[in-house]
């Protein structure tokens, strides 16, 4: 048009599409509620099984670790294990599935920014995994005495890790071009690193050489920090844990920003 439209610039007035964010968030939560058994009941049963096996059968034969009974010791590790895998699978599936079925067209054609899309998908995934983490905590406290020394830090670690792994999952979901790729990193990288990252043991129980190797595993720092918020004992200094937690968060945020700058795997 050769003359300015009176309404030109009104795009700037709508600064945040909260209806849009809420629509995606609710859609994602509804997806979880449809599969409530799979989302919450299954992990609760799995946790109970861990306690039967590790807590009662094996744990009773183990010494306490830093004054904490083995059953209680593994609670933060179990929570982190669930937070990592649920955040990743929820967020990656959330964005991969519309890409796979083609319904992503609607999100791409909507007046919603990339930042808002991330807030909605990652927010929903993090919400779900936090609820799951707390469910595990509640289930665990039926079996073992769990006390939380630094509840504020516990919540903070829980939140940041849930959001970080949701962001990571979102990246995986964008990157994946097939179902196999979607599972690849969680199964082959994150789960082994978590099992080797002190979810079920203190790395001080390992031979010295393996202790050194473990320090190259970033998951060690995440779990150790979270466990410190429960019992005040840690494998590594809590400051280091915090630095790793925030560093990983910043890295994921950076990659997401980069992806959106280029429209990678979303637009061509």
């Amino acid at each position: 048009m050769s003359f300015p439209s009176p309404r030109a610039g009104s795009g700037k007035r709508l600064d945040f599409n909260h209806h849009g964010v809420w629509a995606i968030y609710r859609f994602e939560i509804a997806r979880a509620l449809r599969t409530l058994v799979q989302t919450l009941v299954t992990p609760a049963i799995t946790t109970s099984l861990y306690f039967v096996v590790f807590g009662a059968a094996i744990g009773s034969r183990l010494d306490s670790l830093g004054g904490v009974g083995y059953g209680a010791f593994i609670v933060p590790g179990l929570m982190m294990l669930a937070i990592f895998s649920e955040s990743m699978s929820n967020a990656s599936f959330g964005i991969f599935f519309p890409k796979f079925t083609g319904t992503i067209y609607e999100v791409l054609s909507a007046p919603i920014s990339y930042v808002e899309i991330v807030i909605a998908y990652v927010g929903a995934a993090a919400t779900k995994s936090i609820v799951l983490g707390l469910t595990i905590l509640a289930t665990a406290s039926l079996f073992v005495p769990v006390h939380i020394l630094h509840p504020g830090w516990m919540i903070a670690f829980l939140l940041v890790n849930a959001v970080t792994f949701s962001l990571f999952g979102f990246i995986l979901g964008l990157w994946a071009t097939g179902w196999e790729q979607l599972q690849l990193i969680p199964m082959l990288v994150v789960t082994p690193l978590t099992f080797l990252g002190g979810a079920f043991y203190s790395i001080s129980m390992l031979p010295p050489a393996w202790q050194t190797v473990s320090l190259f595993n970033p998951i060690v720092y995440l779990i150790s920090g979270f466990r410190w918020s429960f019992y005040g004992t840690a494998d590594v200094r809590v400051g280091l844990s915090l630095a790793f937690t925030l560093g990983f968060f910043a890295a994921c945020l950076g990659v997401v920003a980069l992806i959106f700058k280029t429209g990678y795997r979303l637009k061509n």
Binding site: P4, G11, K12, L14, S109, P111
Partner: peptide, 20 residues
Amino acid sequence: DGHDIQREYRAARAKIGLVP
């Protein structure tokens, strides 16, 4: 409707419906 689809994508897209 006068809104650039890239610079003012919110205002532009709010006006448009698509049946793919």
